[in-house]
Design a protein around this nucleic acid. Sequence first.
RNA 1: GUGAGUGUAGCUCAGCCGGUUAGAGCAUCUGACUGUGGCUCAGAGGGUCGGGGGUUCGAGUCCCCUCACUCACCCCA
Length: 418
Amino acid sequence: MKYKTLKGLQDILPPEIAAWHHIENKARDIFRNYGYQEIRLPILEATDVFIRSIGETSDIVEKEMYTFQDKGGRSVTLRPEGTASFVRAYVEHHLYNDPSPQKFYYLGPMFRYERPQAFRYRQFYQIGAEAMGIDDPKLDAEIIAMLSKLLHSIGLAGLNFEVTSIGCKKCRPDYRTALKSFLGGKLDTFCGDCQRRYDANPLRILDCKVPSCIESRKGSPPVLDYLCGECRDHFESLRGYLDVLNVPHTVNPNLVRGLDYYTKTAFEVSSENLGSQSAVAAGGRYDSMVAEFGGPSTPGIGFAMGMERIIPLIQDSVSKATGPDLLFCPLGDKASEKAFVLTEQLRAMGIWGEMNHESASMRSQMRKANRIGAKNVIVLGEDEIGKGEITIKNMTDGNSIKSSLVASDIFKIISQHK
RNA sequence: GUGAGUGUAGCUCAGCCGGUUAGAGCAUCUGACUGUGGCUCAGAGGGUCGGGGGUUCGAGUCCCCUCACUCACCCCA
């Protein structure tokens, strides 16, 4: 085979599309009820858009971006996530001047140059939502509730909602300092990865799965104790509102986000039914990003869900593609031309009509009708054309109904058996 | 970037201590059944055994290299 998809990229073939549509349709329905409007953003952005927002030392920026020079010598990057592009557009088009909150959703492909594995691809699709201009924790609760409603309406079960607060510009540095001073003394008892994390992102050490690291970090200062008053209130209110809205959740203080722009609320939804890449959706609040992009100080909160992580969870329950409403099986050239015209007329009336083009035996034409899942079949031969009368065979129950050779008569019968 | 595993027909996979024309099931096509599918039966097409090199009288099988895929780590949706 000469050509193949690039590593980590995949073709999505028709049998899978029904599941994609199912998710997208549910998302559009629910977003509408919550007042989210679609926004379509470019896949390519100036590289700086991502470096500035996601963070210079984040893994995404350090090693996962598809970055290259365009013909004008500018550094451009295939978006590794949606929020940075969104905020760029929000500021560029002065959307903050619309009444708050402004709510948006988007869907499309993201790109990260990672080693592919189960449920992780280099090109992957996300559906994301962003709510801007309000820092009330009710909005945090609302968007998490919306996400919960969406995932459940899609048909997912066995989900875990985890929330935490990672503090803000004021209190996070204090925690970081406290944590580093606790870990610093016994750094040599941690794994190599953690020793690297100590400088780059010490919070991540709290999430390490190596048993010796779990042991060594026991007694480390709890994140939530270091929140400033504002962040603590925000988080406590959020939890209360989640209870009011009946969104079951657990607090996971060690929830770590790979993006630098988050403040206060961070959350993640994982599934018990995936492999090691179990996060189905994740998000958080980003109250200083708009200002960093040159807009007026404006709070925001959003999430993104990964299509490839959801599809396998629902695939079996979504009905597969079906066959045509009607298949003509013509016998001979004259019949073939007649079928050709009738098929086109029936399509104009709203029927999915097909005809066999190759001249084959009756038997093999019927076999094919069965194979493609045709719901009705019309055999068209010399007799039928001579008499101007045909029988429409229903492939589900095997019964036949007589009809004239006129499209409108055929339509009446087929439309009852689609 | 690191580690492990797997590459044989369109798909899922057998193939023994190396042995002569490389197999099965499913799928495709044809026929049994002259113009009515699904079941059954018979037959046909379809393979550089991932690629290259080596050992050997002889390699799908053993060795080396390489490529691809998969899973996991890192990290994340």
